[in-house]
Write a protein that binds this DNA or RNA. Structure first.
Length: 197
DNA sequence: CCCATGATGCCCT
DNA sequence: GGGCATCATGGGT
């Protein structure tokens, strides 16, 4: 069943961990893509020098993160890639969860076409295992761009459902590529699925 | 597997 | 103008 807004209206660290193992659903035109969320990171502006909202100043880019929970924050990075985040906590605070990796479940074929312009059976082994294992890659695979910034996660285009899968644990580790963030770079706010044990 | 490097454009952290 | 919540590629081990 589809997660409601109250799921997102919690501390970003709780939401980030709770999103692991859930199903991300992406719909556009006639396409339906489902994949399991296997890696996330939390960002909380008040105490986090890695957050785009650090310092509390609302800018055109970050304003969606200061708004109510349960909306998509999509930003453009390194001149080439998009990253998908879910806004968390109450209105007025600035926090979000970055979706870092997905395991394809349904319609991997469509993801292949979006990523490489080729069918699954034309991909190399390397390409096949790298369809959505990174924040920029998964946005390509799911056709997510700046146009999806602000998308309501209780709507039909992008949402999360719980299929009851619980046969995993969640590992916590340091976040990736935020070496500039001083003490915040050591926060264990990265969550990854552990299928064993 | 690992590491180094270049691509490329928006944002102002 | 500096930097960036990334990725593909190519070479070494």
């Amino acid at each position: 069943m589809k997660l409601k807004r109250n799921f997102y209206d919690r501390d970003a660290r709780v939401v980030g961990e709770d999103l692991i193992g859930k199903i991300l659903v992406r719909k556009y035109d006639d396409a339906v893509i489902k994949s399991r969320i296997v890696e996330t990171e939390a960002y909380i502006a008040e105490i986090d020098k890695a957050s785009h909202g650090y310092g509390g100043k609302i800018t055109p880019r970050t304003k969606i993160m200061f708004g109510p929970p349960g909306f998509a924050y999509v930003y453009f990075i390194y001149g080439m890639y998009y990253c998908l985040n879910f806004v968390t906590e109450g209105e007025g605070t600035c926090s979000a969860v970055l979706i870092r990796a997905l395991d394809p479940l349904i319609n991997k074929e469509e993801m292949s076409l979006n990523r490489y312009g080729k069918q699954l059976n034309e991909l190399t082994k390397y390409q096949r295992s790298n369809i959505s294992n990174g924040p920029g890659k998964l946005c390509n695979a799911l056709k997510i761009t700046k146009e999806q910034n602000g998308t309501d996660l209780t709507g039909t285009e992008i949402y999360v459902e719980d299929d009851g899968f619980r046969n995993f644990k969640v590992d916590k580790s340091k976040r990736i590529n935020i070496d500039y963030a001083e003490e915040a770079k050591d926060f264990l706010w990265r969550y990854t699925i552990n299928y064993n044990s």
